Simulated assay, not measured.
Amino acid sequence: MGNLIKSEGYKLRKDRAFQLLTWMLITVSFLFPLLEFDREGSALPIVNDYYRNEILGVHTNIVKLIPSILAGFFITSEYSMGTMKSIASSGNSRLRIYFAKLAMFSVGAIVISLILPMIMTGASAIYFGFDDMPEWTYYLQTIGLIILYSAAFASIMAVFSILFTDSGKTIGFLLLFFMFVDWPLQVLAAKAPFFEPMIRHSVFKLVYDIVVIDQLKGTEVLIIVVIPILTFVAFGLIGSFIYQKKEIK
């Protein structure tokens, strides 16, 4: 298992899609806050408000959409290149192969998801001043939740990525799925009240509560922490089952 993890880690570091997405987000992290200087007559925002409203406000889309692109290249493309067949015939069990792939893909998704909250926050502090920074407890709580939800969404992406054998189809499907999944879930909750509690406590809904973690208490905090962990485990098992049954050509 250790060798598989090292192999997948090496492939992740060398993956051009991962490198491109990483550098693109780093560039955006430094350039986007500069737009605040172009707003005539408006005072520069304080870092705490900028972190809550601008960074975390749009960060949900980063967590769901950008790693979808990586999934197509890091997981699905190995089918078309024959890499998956070589790995499957190496003597390692498919269960180990899948979880090694999932673990490293989750690491890649987490790295991508942390760029804006960490680098853009630092850049905005340099530009706007270090006064009124986010409280450390709130900042660390949001960072921790971003890690959990990035891994949870990565496990969902991995399941769909092994169903397709073409990276373009995977990327297109995942982008459309995560962009529009909220609407059918709302309709389902309205039409079938039985599903409403399940949908309300799914990662698709709870991810929007990361920004208000400091306003949650007791059971709400437990739910927002436990659900992504359970999601990662559940979809990891589903994906491993599908992979073991899948014919690899």
Rank of each mutant, 00 (worst) to 15 (best):
L56K: 08
S93R: 08
K101R: 13
F99S: 05
M198G: 00
L148V: 05
N92D: 10
A154P: 00
Y51D: 10
G168A: 14
L188D: 00
F74C: 08
F32Y: 15
V212I: 15
A109I: 00
I5V: 14
L95Y: 13
G41T: 04
E54R: 14
Y98P: 08
S93N: 11
Y51F: 15
N3E: 04
F178G: 10
E8N: 13
I62H: 08
V159C: 05
T231M: 11
G108T: 00
I87V: 14
T231Q: 06
Q215E: 06
L114T: 01
E78Q: 02
G239A: 09
Y79Q: 03
S113F: 02
I147M: 05
K6E: 03
N3W: 04
I171H: 12
A123N: 08
V63N: 09
F153S: 06
V225S: 14
G41Y: 07
K246M: 00
D214R: 09
L25V: 08
R16W: 12
S150T: 05
P33R: 12
W136K: 02
T170I: 05
A109G: 02
W23E: 00
T60G: 15
Y79S: 00
R13Y: 11
F74Y: 15
K11G: 00
R94I: 04
A234R: 02
V212M: 07
S155H: 10
L4P: 11
I55V: 12
E247K: 06
T27I: 15
K169C: 11
H59L: 05
L70T: 02
K101H: 08
I199N: 01
F235G: 05
A151K: 11
Q19G: 07
V63I: 15
S124Q: 03
R16F: 13
P45M: 02
D49T: 12
I171T: 12
R52V: 13
I87S: 02
S68T: 03
D132F: 10
V58D: 08
I171D: 12
L145V: 05
V47R: 11
K14D: 08
V226A: 12
K217V: 06
T219E: 08
K101C: 03
L148H: 07
S202Y: 10
F99P: 03
I242D: 00
E40F: 15
S161P: 08
A192C: 10
M84Y: 09
A123T: 11
L216G: 00
G144I: 09
V58T: 13
K101A: 09
W136H: 00
V212K: 15
R13A: 07
V226E: 00
I66S: 02
I69A: 03
M84S: 11
E8C: 10
I66Q: 00
F232Y: 12
E54A: 05
L31Y: 15
S29E: 10
G82T: 01
F241W: 09
V58S: 12
L206G: 02
S240A: 14
T27V: 15
T76H: 10
F73I: 11
L175N: 04
P184A: 01
M24V: 10
